[in-house]
Design a protein around this nucleic acid. Structure first.
Length: 466
RNA sequence: GGCGACGUACCCAAGUGGCUAAGGGACAGCUCUGCAAAAGCUUCAUGCGUCAGUUCGAAUCUGACCGUCGCCUCCA
C-alpha cells in the first residue's frame, strides 16, 4: 500500500487515485528565461522517480509539467539579449530539454505553455469575477482573498497574521494588501493579449490552475513542487481553482526539500548556485540522480562536489556489478524468480513509505553486494546461479525507476573502436613478453586522455571515464 | 515575531517502542594481481544534539534547553 505525505493534511495517507488504476500528476516546471540551476533539478528528478514508481506499480500515469514562457523575468531577459520574449522562451526551452535528457528524466506527456492557454486563463478570471471572488481595478484583476474562507489551508497561514506582516501596499488598486494578481494590465512595449479588461497578461499563479485542469481534470491526484512554492504559489492555485470549479483541486500535495549550498538555499536571487549545465560538464547525470536518491525527497540536501564524487563512485559500483553479472550469465536471465520476488517485496516496503528512495536504493546495494560475492567465485552451482539471476533481474527492474546504471555505449564502434582493439592487442603482446615498462606506459598515457584500462581474468577491458 | 522541518560513525544517510543501529562514500590491513584497477574479507557508533521524564524496555514517546535550515517577498 503506497503512502504519500500530503502537505494538505500534514500526514502520510494511503494513495487512492480519483480514477482507479490511473494517476494524474502535475509538477511546476521551469520559467524558461535562463539555464536552470542544480537546485531546480531536484523536483524534476524527484517527481520523475515518483512517476516511474507509480508506473512500476502498474498505474497508468499522466504526467504534466508546465513551461512558464511569459513573465517579468522573461521580459527582462528579452531586453537584455535584445530579442523577443518568444525567442527567449524558445531558446531556453531547448536548453531545458537538453539538461533533463542528460539527467535521464523521462519526458512528460504534455508540456503546456502559458502563452498557449491565455483563453483558458481569461475564462477562469471571468468566472471568478462572476462568482464574486475577484474584482477589476484599472485594467488589473485581483483575487479577493477574504472572500475565500479556506485560504491558508495548505500552508497553515492565518489570514490575520499574514495581514499584520504584509508591508504597505504600493498605491495599487488592491482592496486588501494580500490580494494577488490574476490579470496584469500591459505596460507600453510589453507583450500583451486582448482581454475583457484591456490588453494585459496573466498573473503567475493562474497558468498552473488553468493548464492542470485542462489536461488532468478539475480534481486530480498529485501536484508536486518545491517547499518554497507552498506559499504563496500553491496556496493561490488552490484558491483560484476551488473558487472557480467549486470542488477539491488536488488530493495529494507533494513538496520536495531544498538543495543547500553552504547551509543556505541555493537560489538565483542569492547568487549561490551552479547551473545544471555546469554540473553536467563535470559529473554524470546518473550521479546527480544518485545524490538525490540517497536522501529522502522531503529533506534538504547539502550540495557539494565531494558529495557528487561520492555519488559517482556509487554509480560506478552498481554499473560495474550489473555489467559483470550480465556477462557472467551471458545475458541469459532465466529463473531466479523467488530471489527476485523477495527483493521486490523489500524494495516496495521502502518505496511505499512516501517514496523512501534512500531505503529502496539500500536494498539495491544489498543485491549488488550479493552479486559481487557470487562473481568472486570461480564456479557457481545451480542454486547460486539462480540467486545471481534473481539479483540481476532485480537490479535491472529497479533501474527502470532510478535510472542510475550507465547505459551509454562505449564508443566502441567505427575506427575508434578498431584502434582501441589494436592498442589492447599490442599491450597484450607486451605483457606476454613481460615488458611492464611499455605496457604500463600505454595504460598511463591512455588514462591521461580518460580512457581506463583494466586487466581482468577475462581479458583486458577499456572504458571512457567522465 | 508567527508557522514548519531537522540534529544518527570521519562524511552522507535509513531506521519512529523490543532481534547484533540498514546502505553508500572515505580511510587502514589482508586476499587476488607483474604492477594497477575492479572485486572480496576484516576494521570503522555499548551509542543516535544536551538534560530530565514516561515505560519492563526509547535513536524511536513527552518536556525543557542548545544548534541548523525553510516559509512568511520573486523562488524548485
Amino acid at each position: 500500500m503506497l503512502k504519500i505525505f500530503n502537505t494538505l493534511t500534514k500526514k502520510k495517507e494511503e494513495f487512492i487515485p480519483v480514477e482507479e488504476g490511473k494517476a494524474k500528476i502535475y509538477v511546476c516546471g521551469p520559467t524558461v528565461y535562463n539555464f536552470f540551476h542544480i537546485g531546480n533539478a531536484r523536483p524534476f528528478i524527484t517527481y520523475d522517480i515518483v512517476r516511474k514508481y507509480l508506473e512500476f506499480l502498474g498505474y497508468d500515469v499522466t504526467y504534466v509539467m508546465n513551461l512558464t514562457d511569459i513573465d517579468d523575468k522573461i521580459i527582462n531577459r528579452a531586453i537584455e539579449e535584445k530579442i523577443s520574449t518568444e525567442e527567449v522562451a524558445e531558446k531556453y526551452t531547448a536548453e531545458f530539454f537538453k539538461d533533463i535528457d542528460e539527467l535521464r528524466i523521462k519526458r512528460a506527456d504534455v508540456y503546456p505553455k502559458a502563452t498557449d492557454h491565455i483563453k483558458e486563463m481569461i475564462q477562469m478570471v471571468e468566472t471568478l469575477i462572476e462568482k464574486g471572488f475577484a474584482y477589476e481595478s484599472k485594467g488589473d484583476v485581483y483575487f479577493n482573498i477574504p472572500q475565500n474562507k479556506e485560504y491558508g489551508k495548505l500552508s497553515g497561514k492565518i489570514l490575520e497574521e499574514l495581514q499584520a506582516s504584509e508591508r504597505t501596499a504600493t498605491g495599487s488598486g488592491k482592496k486588501n494588501d494580500l490580494d494577488f494578481t490574476l490579470w496584469k494590465s500591459a505596460k507600453p512595449n510589453e507583450p500583451a493579449w486582448e482581454s475583457p479588461w484591456g490588453k494585459g497578461r496573466p498573473g503567475w499563479h493562474l497558468e498552473c490552475s488553468a493548464m492542470s485542469t485542462k489536461y488532468l481534470g478539475e480534481t486530480f491526484d498529485i501536484h508536486g513542487g518545491g517547499t518554497d512554492l507552498v506559499f504563496p504559489h500553491h496556496e493561490n492555485e488552490i484558491a483560484q481553482s476551488e473558487c472557480t470549479f467549486g470542488k477539491q483541486f488536488v488530493n495529494y500535495w507533494m513538496h520536495n526539500g531544498m538543495l543547500n549550498l553552504n547551509d543556505e538555499k541555493m537560489s538565483k536571487s542569492l547568487g549561490n548556485f551552479f547551473t545544471t549545465r555546469e554540473v553536467l560538464g563535470k559529473f554524470l547525470g546518473e550521479s546527480v540522480r544518485m545524490l538525490m536518491i540517497q536522501k529522502h525527497y522531503r529533506s534538504p540536501i547539502a550540495y557539494s562536489f565531494e558529495r557528487l564524487e561520492e555519488a559517482q563512485s556509487s554509480v560506478e559500483r552498481i554499473t560495474s556489478t550489473y555489467k559483470r553479472g550480465l556477462e557472467k550469465l551471458n545475458g541469459n536471465l532465466e529463473g531466479g524468480d523467488e530471489v527476485f520476488a523477495q527483493r521486490i517485496e523489500q524494495f516496495k516496503e521502502g518505496m511505499n513509505d512516501d517514496f523512501n528512495t534512500a531505503k529502496g536504493m539500500s536494498i539495491v546495494f544489498e543485491a549488488v553486494k550479493e552479486v559481487n560475492i557470487l562473481l568472486s567465485k570461480l564456479n557457481l552451482n545451480e542454486t547460486e546461479k539462480n540467486i545471481l539471476v534473481g539479483e540481476i533481474k532485480f537490479i535491472e527492474k529497479t533501474d527502470k525507476i532510478f535510472d542510475v546504471i550507465l547505459k551509454k555505449e562505449e564508443e566502441g564502434g567505427g575506427k575508434f573502436g578498431e584502434v582501441m582493439k589494436i592498442l589492447i592487442k599490442l599491450r597484450k603482446k607486451l605483457r606476454a613478453k613481460k615488458d611492464w615498462e611499455l605496457s604500463d606506459y600505454l595504460r598511463d598515457e591512455l588514462e591521461k586522455i580518460n580512457i581506463l584500462i583494466q586487466d581482468t581474468p577475462n581479458g583486458t577491458k577499456w572504458d571512457i571515464k567522465k
